[in-house]
Design a protein around this nucleic acid. Structure first.
Lengths: 351, 351
DNA sequence: GCAAGCACTGTAAGCGCTTACATTGCGTCT
DNA sequence: AGACGCAATGTAAGCGCTTACAGTGCTTGC
């Protein structure tokens, strides 16, 4: 035993080199299999042996090499997420909850962001899978069929979040953007508004934004409002963008009495532009948002918006993904409820 | 050649199993070494061979197994970051820039958050290192010496961000929190304020918060203001916390004319509480923040604060860390400049 | 008193890749 | 013409771990 000629050399290195499973085994005078079992399935090992091994682990400051473990066990305990950007508070919040839940269950989060670019997203997804992500979180349904095929071929459990559509087959947790926005729009219309404005994020590669616009249109259709009562402007994410879009709406359609924005950040911009233009909110013009980020209650007047349970979504997404990895296929499609938060920025039109 | 009895079986599996380097090699009729070289050092391979290999890669849809690569090459192209929380916009913004730069250079980001808990942070750092992070980004200097020793022993390049102290030996990119806050406080005092309030995040495990409080005290010392002219309140991060802290200050010291807050979110809370108490800002009381998040310009009145270049910090942190990994040890300590953004929430005291 | 079963532990074969080293076939130099 | 260098490729030894399988020494039932 221990007549391996390299043993002495290894012993000398030990202070400087990172200890391996084999070092621990040697130290505790057991086989590597036993050390591995101590770490992964302690009840299979006798108590005295286990204690000896654990002592060796502690003494050497051993911690397992993740890549080796992943290679041998074919599981990484790592979950990938591709989001448009962390700078958007709604994703930051959801992702934070997602990561907390993952951490609680011994997993780590691998993050990539696509900057709302479809091809970049596809590339990020490939990267995450190649890195061995056990599962994938993606935002919204919209992406090339080839991406979905790739995921299916690799058999990586994947979950769509921030969107829910009962017609879509993919596992998802989210809400029906169109329905949520329609609820708000219906309320606005019932208050008496007839000339509406809408500010939306770009809709080409973004089903959430698309859904929200459709929601407005659906509510108008239901209440018999003709389509030309809506002035729709598309613009980038950002406060300044919201300001510019608002100015465009009141320039194009000065009789607009309510502007529905695709998210709270755009709404904050609209609000600021309205005030800058000398319009009173909500007396002269009503403004609404979507998401209910912290900003919404801070605005003056505070913002009427659609509340989305971002944290809950993140937390449950982690739960779902991890149980999908474990092979438990129940509850793979979850629709969350949103609700209206009626605040000062919305009122009946004065006329 | 190809008389391996398992060859046929492998061939049949190919459609369902994930292709490996060996599959590609077989397909292109070269050795695995050549395939590996095509992927990692293409100029070492002759053009016709390379093209044949690349075709095989494309045909099989091969992508390398990351764990195996990491195990063999001892490099993961993954950088870990431990931040307090993504829900704080300043970290989200910096981290986004960090991740973008990392991605641009072919690296991926592994994220962990500590929820401002010191022991959790230590654990996360160990986890990230065990997962093979090539380098580490950490927020602020404050952490147990054992953690720094661990990092040094593992020889993982690590960078402190969001803080800079010329007395500290660790590689860092950030700014001098005390100096930045002292600059603001000096300005406030020069305006004529004599009775100050300060709202700070908990300082035990947070050198940034500590520095900011010290900055206020330093400015007071320099200008001959006695320490008892300052009412200091510690509280958690959050708007409501800021509101409560503000109420406590004006209850304890009703003659306070300016409240300096450790960050913009606390300042937003203070602002709201001031207005709720019927105080005019800045006529009755001045309020300042720190960070210059988007919220600051949205407040009414807009918030006087210290601008911090979060995005630049994130981007350069990525650059620095990657060059440290590459063995380039230049410029390992970078001090960034902050600047005052004087806005409506600060004015001279009326008295 | 002996086969069967059980609780532990060890042996060794990979997992999919990288890379040091060996080999081959040229063109070149003297 | 023979020695040499060089470019292109192959061979094979790991990287550090997991796990199927194979003992080993007991207790137990009949």
């Amino acid at each position: 035993m221990h007549d391996d000629p390299s043993y002495a050399a290894r012993g000398r290195q030990r202070a400087t080199a990172v200890p391996t499973l084999a070092d621990v085994a040697r130290h505790a005078k057991v086989s590597t299999a036993t050390v591995s079992r101590c770490l992964n399935a302690p009840d299979l090992v006798g108590k005295p042996t286990r204690e000896r091994v654990m002592a060796a682990v502690a003494e050497l400051g051993y911690s397992p090499n993740f890549s080796a473990r992943a290679l041998a066990a074919k599981r990484t305990n790592t979950v990938g997420a591709v989001i448009p950007t962390m700078e958007n508070a709604i994703f930051a919040r959801g992702l934070q909850a997602f990561q907390e839940e993952l951490g609680r269950r011994g997993n780590t989060l691998l993050v990539a962001s696509s900057s709302y670019q479809e091809d970049l997203e596809a590339e990020q997804i490939r990267t995450l899978v190649a890195r061995g992500a056990d599962a994938l979180l993606m935002i919204g349904y919209h992406r090339d069929a080839a991406v979905y095929e790739f995921i299916a071929r690799r058999k990586v459990p994947a979950l769509v979040a921030w969107s829910f559509d009962s017609d879509e087959p993919h596992p998802a947790i989210g809400f029906d953007n169109a329905r949520a926005m329609a609820g708000l729009a219906r309320h606005v219309i019932h208050l008496g508004h007839r000339k509406l404005g809408a500010i939306s994020a770009p809709t080409e590669a973004n089903d959430r934004a698309r859904g929200r616009v459709e929601g407005v249109q659906r509510a108008m259709g239901e209440t018999g409002l003709a389509a030309d009562n809506l002035t729709l402007v598309h613009t980038q994410y950002g406060i300044e963008s919201g300001e510019a879009a608002f100015r465009k709406i009141i320039a194009d359609a000065p009789d607009t009495t309510a502007v529905l924005c695709g998210n709270d950040v755009l709404a904050m911009g609209a609000l600021r532009a309205a005030k800058a233009a000398g319009l009173r909110v909500p007396e002269d013009i009503s403004i609404t948002g979507f998401d209910d980020i912290e900003l919404a209650t801070l605005a003056e007047p505070s913002l009427t918006t659609v509340h989305v349970p971002h944290r809950e979504m993140g937390r449950r997404a982690a739960e779902m993904l991890l149980s999908m990895v474990a092979g438990d296929a129940s509850d793979t499609r979850v629709e969350l409820e949103t609700d209206l938060r009626l605040r000062g920025s919305l009122g009946p039109p004065l006329g």
